[in-house]
Write a protein that binds this DNA or RNA. Structure first.
Length: 471
RNA sequence: GCUCCCAUCGUCUAGCGGCCUAGGACGUAGCCCUCUCAAGGCUAAAACACGGGUUCGAUUCCCGUUGGGAGCGCCA
């Protein structure tokens, strides 16, 4: 059997961390099994679905590099298919019209809850005499729209889910109620469309979050009613916030795009996400290639995982190490631009980034700490100036400037003797001489080695900055 | 409330009955390196939720308890 999997987000928000991992696992599984990865937009919630979110999800997927082989399909464009299936169930007596009002439903739920039962539908309309079936789904003309269509679920027996991650899960059919498959406005509902779509798209494996685990038995009932074989299921554990609650906006950035804008590499985000729930021995860092080769659904754990931004950062820094200085220039460019800095000298920028690359864990951080190289005027940190640019130190800097003016170029070779000599002469520690220079050149007390900074800046910039700091 | 799922260091996890004195990673702390900050190296603290079984032997298997998560929508 050929492997066909799908990622089916609903466009009611941006692509978030949890969705991205689900998409990744589907993608990895498809790649490894040489199957097909399908993207399906579940937009039957016309109230909340928007075109913007759809685009945002597509953008997120593209940025991550999770390319799809088929789609994107939109459920709103597949209405005839759903209606056809509803009609079939209706004709076979496996679905029925329900004229209960939302108000009555609410009362029934409340009463059930009060009696200690599940807040399910009491099957009133199913038990009353059947209304003329007709083509409820395809009703068009002057027909009233004050009814919806419910699935007539089996009253007895048990339904068992075969899950690649959870094993077998048996649920008593008594726990399942007659879910609505077609709303009174004629649109189908999730549990129905997902089944019809997965069948008609010939999905072989349904890999999704385990918030859908409870829905699975009802869906299996629908497969059976429709006379289709059910796909193989694999329910992934949830991703939680630091408070062990389901990850939400309250936990900070949850949209994939936010991570792109914060300077994370798509490969790093995916690497981190992959390790949330999946592992391969002690390995932490994976290339996409390694992941597609190594990923197995059998190695996915069952327990929910807490999203740890700190570890993500570390993973990102590890991935950052794999790029050359030259590649870093292009990666960091948008983040320099965000600060209003344009890259005029590519080689210079590459050398600047080289000196800082161990210090920034995201591209945003990296660009921020490298910015002083590209800025014309140094931005001074007040505390640093107060501590290190005292009158006494300024005298020292003046002396340094004079000596530097006499050398042809700045390098370890020319710089070291000069500073060491001054250090001895004034009976100072190297730190007492390095810090004033550092503040004068970078504006802060933190930077790469001072010799390196000076060599990269070059004689002209160094002297200019020194002069300016002395004012 | 009912049903389902889950349970190893703070966090991500390895472990699939003896190899466990429970391993790795992030983070934390200390030391080394050192012109600052990182990076790097070394070291340390840190976990099998609890109680019953099964077994010669349980982190590993079973049951219960507790804790957490999810579902119970004319949302997906």
């Amino acid at each position: 059997m050929s492997v066909r999997v799908r990622f089916a987000p609903s466009p009611t928000g941006h692509l978030h961390i949890g969705g991205a991992r689900t998409a990744l696992y589907n993608w990895l599984f498809a790649r490894r099994e040489q199957g097909v990865f399908i993207l399906r937009i579940e937009d039957t919630d016309t109230e909340r679905s928007t075109q913007e979110y759809t685009q945002s999800i597509l953008d997120g997927m593209s940025w991550l590099g999770l390319t799809w082989d088929e789609g994107p399909f939109h459920q709103m464009e597949r209405m005839p298919i759903y209606r056809e299936h509803v009609d079939r169930l209706l004709a076979e007596g496996k679905a029925y019209r329900c004229t209960c009002s939302p108000e009555r439903l609410e009362e029934v739920r409340k009463a059930a809850l009060a009696a200690g039962r599940k807040p399910t539908y009491d099957r009133k309309c199913r038990n009353e005499e059947r209304l003329p079936a007709g083509s409820a789904a395809g009703r068009t003309k002057n027909e009233e729209r004050n009814f919806c269509i419910r699935f007539a679920a089996p009253l007895t027996g048990t339904t068992v889910v075969h899950d690649m991650i959870r094993g077998e899960i048996a649920v008593d059919n008594k726990e399942l109620d007659d879910l609505i498959i077609l709303r009174s406005d004629g649109t189908p509902t999730y549990n129905f469309t997902v089944v019809v779509d997965d069948v008609t798209m010939q999905i072989s494996h349904v890999i999704r979050g385990d918030d859908h685990l409870n829905n699975t038995p009802r869906q299996i009932l629908l497969y059976q009613a429709l006379g289709y074989p059910a796909p193989i299921f694999a329910h992934l554990p949830m991703i939680l916030g630091a408070d062990k609650q389901r990850l939400s906006k309250r936990h900070g950035a949850t949209s994939v795009i936010a991570y792109r804008d914060a300077g994370y590499l798509p490969g790093a985000l995916l690497n981190y996400l992959a390790r949330l729930g999946w592992s391969h021995g002690d390995q932490e860092i994976f290339t996409m290639d390694e992941m597609t080769r190594l990923f197995r659904l059998e190695d996915v754990g069952k327990a929910p995982a807490v999203f740890d931004p700190e570890k993500l950062k570390w993973v990102n820094s590890e991935h950052l190490k794999k790029y050359t200085d030259d590649q870093l220039v292009d990666l960091a460019r948008p983040f320099f631009e965000k600060q209003g800095l344009a890259i005029v000298d590519r080689g210079y920028t590459a050398r600047a980034l080289h000196s800082e690359r161990e210090r920034g864990k995201t591209l945003d951080e990296l660009a921020a700490i490298t910015a002083f190289y590209l800025r014309d005027a140094v931005t001074f940190d007040e505390a640093a100036v107060t501590k290190w640019l005292t009158a006494e130190k300024k005298g020292l800097l003046k002396e340094i400037a004079e000596r530097l003016g006499q050398v042809s170029d700045l390098s370890d070779l020319t710089l070291k003797p000069i500073l060491e000599e001054l250090q001895k002469q004034h009976n100072l520690k190297l730190v007492d001489i390095a810090q004033p220079i550092r503040v004068a050149l970078t504006g802060t007390t933190v930077s790469p080695g001072i010799f390196e900074v000076m060599a990269i800046l070059g004689k002209e910039r160094v002297l200019t900055r020194l002069a300016r700091a002395l004012q």
